[in-house]
Design a protein around this nucleic acid. Structure first.
Length: 558
RNA sequence: UGACCCAUGGUGUAACUGGCAACACGUCUGAUUUUGGUUCAGAAGAGUCUAGGUUCGAGCCCUAGUGGGUCAACCA
């Protein structure tokens, strides 16, 4: 029999595209990512960015970056720059950066065209009045008393709106469609509102600004976007999207909706993220606990890991909640291959190797990355006094089969160094272990061990003599609840009080002094750590990007 | 209540024009390991929301129901 072909499976959008290509409807494709510059990009946007850019790449097309900047009240240039920065970091490029505001003149002309064809009118009703007469899903809207103005009257009024003769809210341009439509968006939606407010790009040129529905499809059309991919909540807008294109008789872009990304234990609502920033729950949009791209970058998540994650989550139309463990897995997977290993002790306790000569320092050879031979090796200092982590010692450990680490009379290897045996320990007044005493076996030196000794445990350690005292910031999930969004506006009550834990005096091997901001390394047996923005030469600051998988901790919690 | 959309292991996605459900994450075993990491080998876990129908045969098609989502901003 024939072998099973390893057919690539397509998501539903790829299928549409391949059909369109096969039928000759399109010879190539054009997509676009259309953020509103009113906040920073988050992991949910990453899914959309990766989808649009990768689709264009796969089918030899192009993906535009277009800022959907039709609401000067909320948008600004800082957000524009932040967004551009984030998308570049994610690994994508585009030609010119486009703006809906660049199309304002064309949009205005198209509005006039609709007025002339009797498809749009100026309504003097207030927003409240319009809202009150819009009806309900099952009962039709009431007609505005201004709905049947003449074309000339509408033209004159709209012109005056543009010129700034009317106060905000006093008039609005509406499409004349169907007041009885079961689709609320078709009940004479607003096309233009008066907003006497300077725009970050057009300054004070305009006193009126187009609504999303009267801007998005037309912008797609102008850019000859073949497949305009957006999220599910725009499904009900599609008939309107198509109505404008048809009435204007312009290039018919096709809107396709997919389900946005939801991540467990995290919130992806720009409004709520802004609230976390403004109310000081986090230090800013780039606080490493935030799900924003700028925060993930600062925290040390590799762009490649985010791209990989965004691909793995798939594309479909049903609402979903992705397990944050998948993101974490993607990050570890990438870092495991790329991050150099380094010795670091987060909660240090001193070990004295009593039979090791005082003052002697041996520089022992250590592998930089066991997953990457080309990463080479380095030398780390070994001496009579070393730090190990407090959790690596137990006064009264369970059986050696269960606990591999150090305890009275137990033997472990100090990685890349010697096997040591615990000969005693001291405690301080508070009952905490303050000093661990050991003896070492000179014939067990790593790489030239002739002792035949076998130990189950290997500990990471840092020589006291050369230890670099550093600050390490440990992060945990920002929310305690799997679905913080379900709490509505009470979501801040679900914040994890222990999402940040600062260690002021971690002890690290000396090679960390050569690290630069943004570099990410693995502290052996601990996790991945990235040099933070706040780091200085005198005070190195690390972010814990993500911990290692820890079966030991898992077993302990049982 | 009206319109539109959705419904497959714990989670997410697959299953070419219908041929007895696959992959990833997670979980659990075991092996290897100078990281309780990685890697490797393996296991458990769904019979595809329900009820009808079409068909030799349905997760895929049809109908109804149920459940969930979206929509009544001069936000996007």
């Amino acid at each position: 029999m024939s072998m099973e072909e390893n057919k690539p499976t397509l998501n539903f959008i790829e299928q549409i595209i391949e059909d369109d290509l096969a039928s000759g409807k399109h010879k190539s494709i054009q997509t676009r990512f259309p953020p509103e510059p009113n906040g920073y990009l988050h992991i949910g946007h990453a899914k959309s960015i990766v989808l649009n850019f990768e689709l264009a790449k796969k089918y030899n097309g192009k993906c535009n970056l277009r800022f959907d900047d039709t609401n000067p009240e909320k948008e600004n240039e800082d957000y524009v720059n932040g967004i551009i920065n984030d998308i570049h970091w994610l690994g994508y490029d585009w030609g010119d950066t486009l703006f809906t505001s660049d199309y304002f003149d064309q949009l205005y002309e198209w509005a006039i065209k609709l007025i002339k064809s009797g498809k749009a009118y100026v309504d003097d009703q207030s927003a409240d009045q319009i809202s009150a007469t819009r009806g309900t899903p099952s009962e039709p809207a009431k007609e505005s008393p201004f709905r049947n103005r003449t074309v000339d009257e509408n033209l004159a009024l709209f012109e005056e709106m543009k010129e700034g003769k009317y106060p905000e809210g006093s008039k609005v341009l509406r499409a004349k469609i169907d007041l009885a439509s079961p689709n609320m968006h078709m009940r004479d939606p607003a096309m233009y509102r008066i907003k006497r407010m300077p725009h970050h790009r057009t300054g004070s040129k305009w006193n009126i600004y187009p609504m999303y529905d009267f801007a998005h499809g037309q912008s797609d059309s102008m850019e000859k976007v073949t497949h305009s991919i957006c999220t599910l909540e725009f499904e009900n807008h599609r008939p309107l999207y198509e109505w404008f294109i048809k009435e204007l008789d312009i290039y018919p872009s096709r809107q396709i909706e997919f389900a946005r990304l939801n991540l467990s234990y995290t919130i992806t609502s720009k409004r709520k993220l802004l609230q976390l920033v403004e109310e000081g729950y986090v230090t800013g949009w780039d606080d490493p606990r935030m799900p924003t791209l700028t925060a993930m970058r600062r925290r040390g998540f590799p762009a490649a890991a985010i791209r990989h994650f965004a691909t793995r989550v798939g594309v479909a139309k049903r609402n979903n909640v992705i397990d944050v463990a998948l993101l974490e897995h993607s990050v570890r997977e990438d870092l495991n291959k790329t991050a150099n290993r380094v010795m670091g002790v987060l909660d240090p306790v001193k070990v004295v190797i009593e039979n090791y000569p005082e003052g002697k320092i041996e520089w022992v050879n250590a592998v930089n990355n066991p997953e990457d031979e080309t990463a080479g090796t380095r030398e780390i200092p070994f001496s009579r006094e070393v730090y190990i982590d407090r959790s690596d010692f137990m006064e009264d450990p369970p059986s050696p089969r269960k606990f591999f680490r150090l305890g009275p009379d137990r033997e472990v290897r100090l990685k890349y160094g010697y096997i040591v045996r615990c000969t005693g320990y001291e405690k301080d007044d508070n009952g905490n272990v303050s000093l661990i005493k050991c003896e070492y076996f000179p014939d067990t030196k790593s790489g030239q061990d002739t002792s035949g000794k076998k130990v189950k445990g290997t500990l990471s350690w840092v020589s006291v003599s050369e230890a670099v005292d550093s600050e390490v910031r440990l992060y945990d999930r920002l929310f305690l609840d799997e679905n913080p969004a379900a709490a509505g506006d009470d979501f801040t009550k679900l914040l994890n009080p222990d999402s940040l834990n600062i260690i002021k005096h971690a002890q690290l091997e000396p090679s960390v002094k050569t690290l630069k901001q943004g570099d990410t390394v693995q502290f052996e047996r601990q996790g991945y750590f990235s040099v933070d923005l706040d780091s200085t030469e005198k005070n190195i600051v690390f972010n814990r990007t993500i911990g290692l998988r820890d079966n030991w901790a898992k077993a302990q919690n049982k």
